[in-house]
Structures are given as structure tokens and as C-alpha cells.
Amino acid sequence: MTGLMVRGLGSMTKPKIAFYWCASCGGCEESVLDLGEALLDLADRIDIVFWPIALDHKFEVITRLEDGELLATLINGAIRTEEQARLAILFRKKSKILIAHGSCAHTGGVVGLGNLHSDAELLQTIYVDLPTVENPGLLIPGVGSGPLPGEMELTHLHHPVLPLNRLVPVDYVLPGCPPTPELVESALRSLLDGSMPSPSSILGDSKALCDSCPRRPTLEEGIAIKRFKRLHEEAWDSETCFLTQHFVCMGPVTRGGCNARCIRGNMPCRGCFGSLDGVLDQSAKAVAFLAALMHAEEAREAGEVADTIPDLVGLVSQYGLAASVLRRKERGA
């Protein structure tokens, strides 16, 4: 990769890197800023040509580049608007390496849960129905809704929400909501050293989180749950495996590499690192795992235990709905 870099850019030129955000919360930007001093060191070795959260660059900087002139672009966020789709395609063209940065770019993330609703429902809820909204003119973003005179048009929603790789080929994935700064730093250093792993790798562990969980020794055999407990319902022990306590934890079906940061914060895993290699559908894998924990002898009983999970999709597809086989509720839209 170093060879490629030198050939492409000349030995005196620092490799060009871009960061871009699509539909995201800003947490992935934090995962870069959290590098702290390491970021200063890296910034000496790279030329950051585009980074909306920190630098005031215009899009012309990117359109003027030769195709493939960027060594790499890290894109975070899901594809939620037409504009994001257009820019993701542009960055793909200009980059040798495209990295999906964080859960939303990887599998749609929480943003992907928007696929449970139509665009009209979402806009109606956000701009009209929410109790804290005051919108007497019932304005909804679209053509002509700008505060200035003359007709203005905002970008349209992209339906359904897409993870980055459903739009353009992605070379690597930095998983997590957000990825740990350690993973981000190691990816950036590998890029510069030319020591990236084989293409289309996911830059996390190859084993499940459960495997490296500090509470693993307290995971009991033969768990038989008649009622899945929910966190707001009762207190939980801070040392014992969540599953042993009958709280859902997605650790067994989620890729490790996060340093078990939620578990260490006394919260169960919700699957932000996505599934392990070879899994077709994160939600189906989670369903198989949850079923194995259930205690039921009859269909009716199984239904009753299933009823103790009030929002199954929101649980098993919290981060992966947009990348799942079922991907959206509104079909044919």
C-alpha cells in the first residue's frame, strides 16, 4: 500500500485523507477527536483535505481532485438523504480506499430504524405531531418551505435508509457506535504503514464479545427464561453476566473489539459492532440465540415468553435494520 501511495502522490506529498459524515449523531467524529495527542502526530503525516466538523473546506476541493487521489475517505453515518448518496458516490470515486466508519455506515445503525416508517410518517411526526413542536403553519421540509423569498428545495429523503455498502463498494469497516478511538487510530496507522488487512475486512475482533467479556466466568449453563427482564424494571448486579440475570445481552452474537465498554459501564450489549463473519442476518442470528435461552414447552408458552420482549425489531435490529434481509417495513415505496 505504501508503494501505491508513493506512486500515486509523489514521495514528497503527504497522503490525502478525507472524513465525511452522512446521517449520524456526531459520535463517530468524537471517535476521531478522542485520539487526542495521537491525532496531532497523525496530522503531521497526512494531509486532511476534508473534514466538516473541524475544517472549513468546500466541496470543490473534492470535485477538483483526480479520481483515486485520496488515499482514503472515512465516511460515517447512514445514507438518509439524496445529497448524502450523491456525496458518498463522489468520495468513492476520489478515494483509493473507502472506509465505513461506525455502525450507521456499516449497517445503517440507529438511523436505519427509520425504515420502520414511511418518509411521510417520519416528517409528520418530527415537524408536526411531536408535543414539543410548535409549527402553526404545518411546514414540512420540501419545495418552497424556506424562510427566504423564492422557491427553495431541500434534499429529499433517501428511502430506504442504506448502509454505505448498499450504495458503493466499501473496502473496510470500522464497526461500533462509535468505534473505539483505539480502532480508529490503528486503522489510520495501518493505512499509512501500508499494513491494512485483506480487503473488505471488518476491523474488529473475529470472535464474539462474549468471548472477551469480563463477566464471562459468571455465565451459567442451562439458562431457561420465562420472562426477559428489562433494565427499567429492576436492579441488576454489576459483576454477574446479564444473561444469567435474565436480562438480554447481545454479547454472544455480536463481534467483539469494543473492549466490552458497555459491560464495563454496567450496561448490556446491544450489538453495535454487528455480527460475526459468515452471518447473513444479524436479527435472525439474534433470534436463534434468544430462543435458546427461552423456557417453553408449548407454542402458547413460547408466545408468552416472546411477549416479554415488547419491541423485538428494536432489540435485535437496533443497529442493523437497514442491512438486514427484511431491511424496511414500508415496501414498494
Binding site: V287, A288, A291, A296, A302, I309
Partner: peptide, 9 residues
């Protein structure tokens, strides 16, 4: 048990 959850999903 799996079926109960798949159906729900």
C-alpha cells in the same frame, strides 16, 4: 421457540 420469535420478527 425459534418459530415464536421469527414469527414475531
Amino acid at each position: 421457540k425459534r418459530f415464536a420469535l421469527v414469527r414475531r420478527l
